[in-house]
Simulated scan of single mutants.
Amino acid sequence: MHFQQRQWNLIRLRKERNLTQYDMKNLLNISKDAYGMKERGNAQFTMDEMFILSKYFDLPLEQIFLPRNFGVTEIKEVAK
């Protein structure tokens, strides 16, 4: 089973601002379980959700979200 990359930048931002997953799920109007899965990389954030979070944190998307295959390309390059 393949799991996506955890959203470490988002986790860091949330914790720096003393926000809980409950706070975040309310912001996005989704369940806490759904938010947790997305933060852990087991589900993908929608573009709408990413834009909401970008606006909320006042940061560009690329400073919050890691690419879906982050690490995979780097690992393949090392293996060559």
Rank of each mutant, 00 (worst) to 15 (best):
G36I: 05
Q7H: 05
R68K: 14
K32H: 12
F51W: 10
Q44N: 13
N9P: 06
R68C: 09
L28F: 03
I64G: 03
K38L: 07
I64Q: 01
N18Y: 12
I11R: 08
L10C: 04
G71K: 04
D23S: 14
F45K: 01
K25C: 15
Q5Y: 06
M47R: 09
I64R: 02
R40H: 07
G41T: 07
Q44C: 11
M37V: 03
M37A: 12
T46L: 09
G71E: 00
K15N: 14
R17T: 12
Y56M: 05
Q44L: 14
M47F: 12
L13F: 10
M1R: 04
K38C: 05
M1I: 09
I52P: 02
D48C: 09
D33L: 15
L19V: 13
Q4Y: 11
S31N: 07
I30M: 05
Q5G: 10
D58E: 14
W8V: 14
G41Q: 02
R17W: 13
I30T: 00
K15P: 09
Q4A: 15
D48P: 06
T46V: 13
G41K: 05
R14Q: 06
V72E: 10
I52F: 00
D48V: 11
R6M: 12
L27T: 08
N29C: 13
A34D: 06
E77H: 02
T20C: 14
D33V: 11
N69P: 01
R68N: 14
D33C: 15
K80I: 04
L66S: 08
L27S: 00
D48H: 09
E39H: 05
L28V: 10
L28A: 07
S54H: 05
N26S: 15
R6G: 10
G36Y: 06
N18E: 15
Q5N: 15
I75S: 02
F65T: 04
N29E: 13
T20W: 13
R68L: 12
T20N: 11
T73M: 09
R17Q: 14
R40K: 15
A79Y: 01
D58Y: 08
F51N: 11
L53E: 02
F45Q: 03
Q7E: 03
K25Q: 15
L27D: 01
I30F: 03
Y56L: 08
T73W: 00
E39L: 04
F45H: 00
F3L: 09
E49K: 07
